[in-house]
Nucleic acid binder design. Structure first.
Lengths: 142, 142
DNA sequence: CCTTGCCTTGACGCCGACGTCAAGGCTTAC
DNA sequence: GTAAGCCTTGACGTCGGCGTCAAGGCAAGG
């Protein structure tokens, strides 16, 4: 099949396929007139890349999977290098999720504080004296 | 104070401050020789921006906080527009965290599947008999 | 023959938040 | 006077993953 069909079947664009080729992730045979041709194995490879991309892997991280498939393995993750990428990605995800939860907690705190400050503005103004009763909600949302 | 000192006190660079100014987030008086000058309120404003940036807010999202401070409010989040940004960010974070957890689960699954496939492979190889039982486990695409 | 619809390579555009270099001016210290 | 260390504006570079032209070639149908 030619590039347009492959792109359509993989749910992407020809531009993307040429880009992958430029990055050395996808290769193509050529017909007499210079057109790229692909077969089912290329589609499989492409789908592997797209799946990983959907998971948030960047292109370079898909390379081991691609090479694994090219080496004749049944799946892109049939090779140790691919498993390593999985593991690294899991660590990254855990770290990122942790950071995001910490940020979420802080932003939640800020919101609560700011809201109670607004609510408490009248109360504070009415009750002078004590040091800022600034909302001790240590509560974690979620 | 001049731009270098402000940058140092805020833990950032002069380039960043000029960039903020170009984006209309930070303003500066000028001395006779054209140098920018800042005061403590500018530092406060800048720190507000940096804090939000650390939380992952993009620059545009800090604008309401900046305008709130400029309007004379004691805190950048003393204004409704800022609270709205907080709420939007909380929603975004929740959504993002949810997606990441879903991805984490899927990647974890893939890893487990691939690892057990490898284990199975070894077992198959160790077992004398069939010639090349190359992995019929898991989901075949297509 | 002409249009339509594929395909080719090449190259610039985009986004965000700056980094980095260029070329030059002011001030202060020695 | 001259070097050091600030400052100025302007402009191009970075990173990823493509989008979007531009200019042209090839194949098939009417």
């Amino acid at each position: 099949m030619r590039i347009g069909e492959l792109a359509a079947r993989a749910g992407t664009t020809t531009r993307t396929l040429r880009y992958y080729e430029s990055r050395g992730l996808l290769s193509a045979r050529r017909t007499g007139n210079g057109y790229r041709t692909y077969d089912e194995s290329d589609l499989k490879l492409l789908r592997q890349i797209r799946t990983l991309q959907d998971f948030g892997f960047d292109l370079e991280e898909t390379r081991p999977f691609v090479e694994c498939l090219r080496a004749g393995h049944p799946e892109g993750d049939s090779c140790p290098a691919s498993l390593q990428v999985y593991r690294r990605k899991l660590d990254e995800l855990d770290a990122l999720i942790g950071e995001l939860r910490a940020v979420r907690a802080k932003v939640g705190e800020q919101l609560a504080r700011a809201e109670s400050a607004r609510d408490g503005l009248a109360a504070d103004a009415a009750a002078p004296g004590g040091p800022e009763p600034v909302c001790e909600l240590g509560g974690e949302p979620r």
